[in-house]
Amino acid sequence: MEYFLQQMINGLTLGSIYGLIAIGYTMVYSILGMINFAHGTIYMLGAFISLIAYLAATTIGGAPVVVALMVALFATMAFTALWGWTMERVAYRPLRQAPRLAPLISAIGVSIVLQNFVAQAQGARVKPLPPVIQGGFTLMDGDGFSVNLSWMQIIVIVMTLALMAGFSWMIAHTRLGRAQRACEQDMKMASLLGIDIDRVVSTTFVIGAALAGVAGLMVTLYYGVIDFYIGFLAGIKAFTAAVLGGIGSLPGAMLGGLLIGLIEALWSAYFSIEYKDVATFGILIMVLVFRPTGLLGRPDVEKI
């Protein structure tokens, strides 16, 4: 029982991170109808920028930990947002009218470029960061096994919930959100009503990238090791989360992220840790076969 509870906590933490990345996939899909396969690498970029910003702030600036974390957070969000904007501008916008395969390929190209740039610029070896935030609670003390909830896990979960809540509120209640929902339903019509589509698309990329950047920051702090390749697997898993929840659906992305995190944690706990990715992607296949619209997605009904 204690073991199960501990794995639930671990799974929720991991799932929060997937959920944050999944939001970017689902948002871009709902507006442009394309899967931004370079999204995972943005998360990797976020991880590196947060590491660099944090180290720079503490060692060069001599800032206290809290300040350094804030600096890292803002630097990460700013840089990943900028990258998201640039990527859309350079790699996707010129291909907006092209067949669907073209932006997909350019997305893969963008991610390869970024990955290799980071590998060259930062070195291909694993980068460690000593634990920044330590300690936590012991929730339960069973015989020989205690359930721990670390501060870091609390931070990850709370931060994710706050970002998701803020983001959902933005979509539901602000002008920007209204414009985004309008574009999602009928982009041409939105344009005819005077909405600048390009700006809405840019904003979508900027927000999605910033969220992925935060996920990168949290993973750096949580696991303490990053390398230039983490974006690939995390990206595909977040994509699985988005598909599981129903791609195009915002609550779906969050739910899917949490579920994937839980499945991974529980599978590693009770079955074999080596096969945890098999479990995750097995789910992707099952969802695509049996419920392509995902858990919360609504099927596209075509009127005839």
Partner: peptide, 26 residues
């Protein structure tokens, strides 16, 4: 210049009021 369509193109999943608000977005 504004227009309407032969086949109605409302934002079907938004409320009536929201449809009118989107039109004033800019």
């Amino acid at each position: 210049v504004a227009r309407t369509f032969q086949n109605i193109r409302l934002f079907a999943k938004m409320s009536v009021l929201e449809n009118l608000m989107v039109a004033q977005h800019k």
